[in-house]
Design a protein around this nucleic acid. Structure first.
Lengths: 254, 254
DNA sequence: CGGCAAGTTGAGCCAGGTCAACTCCGGTGG
DNA sequence: CCACCGGAGTTGACCTGGCTCAACTTGCCG
């Protein structure tokens, strides 16, 4: 007699969404993982402490946004990465080495997994292994893309890039022209390595050029996707950045 | 009768170094992976083309430095990540989506692995699976740390951080005070999101303060590790940055 | 030894950081 | 229901770190 999956799992997006880890497990494996796991809900500003990470170094996000924050000694703050639905964090062995703090940016549902159970399940189940591997892989490429964004792009270009990143990551309509910005301006600034003031100015400028429309503080409508794309890709020669007569001519020349 | 491991593997660091992937395989698995692999040597500037990546999307670095470069439309270049000995790249499914170019920064030895053989070996051999997983994991955290470096740090702080990153990654003496900078200034600038001129000025400034000594263009001796550490951690209040009388007093106050 | 790319040095300038003042908005309590 | 509060967001004015451009030096490779 195979027991039902733990009740807490039945409503979880990681269990029910196609492509997510738990979706690939059979009843027994789900039971193993379920018994070795604890779901919890974090509110904005809540932190996962170092001691918690020692006991529960592996966790999956089923809703909300979790951030990895680095604090410089003089108070400057950066958000090194954003984790969302379906992401699996494996912090085994990194808690002590000051790799940053995990802080929720809004109400976030997480599932802490027992390392042993996780390892066992991944070893047994190739489907689950692939899901975990691909998730980690996309985290890696996302982090590298993000690093590339931060390195040489100007403020407006970083913002344009971020709008597309948000669109790509929204589960329901990843190609829609309405994009939800799931985090506050302040956090956005820390993620993009800029100041909240600059974020504000850049949004306004994109809006004034008719490239995006701000439906509310957290809803952006993309009005001119190709142009936004060009900005995100750093095409300063087209008439994208500050609309001076000079570079309008340059643009015409190409 | 078990065949010998392919001859090409016998000298490869991924085969012989403890902790590397092939080190965990038995003879038969090594044979599988070896038959489905091609070693090659890239010279500085060589690129792995999109077509190559379609056929050989998985590769391991056994020596040298490989870079993932993003090119903005107006010519700005960024190095999103550096790959070195022991790193495994899994580019399955990412070649088409313009995720950047893989370019060697010096003479680089790579081993292209058959995706099928790799997958089979990882499914069979838990040790190999763990090595691959942990390698990908450290790539992820490295990329995130790098993003954090780029976001809010000043030029000098980024450089200090990079010196420590180089020290951590050198295989032989990861805690030595002599650090090899494995890439050219130009590439370093692209990796840290700054201009070669700025890199040069920052090196000079660190040297003039007696924090590092430049033995040659690619060899740095750390003379004052704690102070370099403080700079890397963004401690602007200590007397680290530009040595004005004003912040010397501030430093004394703490 | 010559040629060329990499690296360095100097001078000027601008994108975005900083600081301060103000508005907006959601929550709370009388 | 409204007055109040505090943090988030915006706007404006000013300042500076690092980018830009140009000239020069160094060092590698044939």
């Amino acid at each position: 007699m195979v027991p039902d999956p733990p009740r807490k799992c039945q409503k979880c997006s990681i269990y029910s969404d196609a492509g997510a880890l738990c979706d690939h497990l059979d009843q027994a494996q789900l039971e193993t993982l379920g018994n070795g796991s604890r779901t919890s809900i974090m509110k904005r500003g809540n932190t996962i402490t170092g001691e918690e990470l020692l006991i529960w170094p592996i966790l999956a996000i089923s809703a909300g946004v979790l951030s990895l924050q680095h604090l410089l000694e003089d108070g400057r703050k950066t958000i090194a990465a954003l984790f969302m639905q379906g992401d699996i964090l494996d912090m085994r062995g990194v808690s002590r080495k000051h790799r940053g703090h995990l802080i929720a940016l809004d109400t976030t549902h997480i599932c802490r997994l027992s390392p042993d159970a996780f390892e066992a399940v991944v070893e047994q189940n190739n489907g689950a292994q692939k899901v975990a591997w691909n998730n980690l892989r996309s985290q890696t490429y996302r982090a590298m893309d993000h690093a590339a964004d931060l390195a040489k792009k100007q403020a407006q270009e970083k913002l344009a890039s971020f709008i597309f990143e948000c669109r790509r990551r929204q589960i329901d309509r990843p190609t829609d022209e309405i994009v939800e910005i799931p985090i506050r301006r302040i956090d956005l600034a820390d993620y993009l390595g800029m100041q909240p003031e600059t974020v504000s100015r850049c949004f306004k400028e994109l809006e004034s050029k008719g490239i995006v429309g701000l439906r509310s503080i957290s809803r952006v409508k993309i009005l001119n996707a190709p142009r936004l794309r060009r900005i995100a890709n750093g095409d300063r020669h087209s008439e994208n950045l500050r609309p001076t007569p000079a570079n309008k001519e340059t643009a015409a020349g190409f």
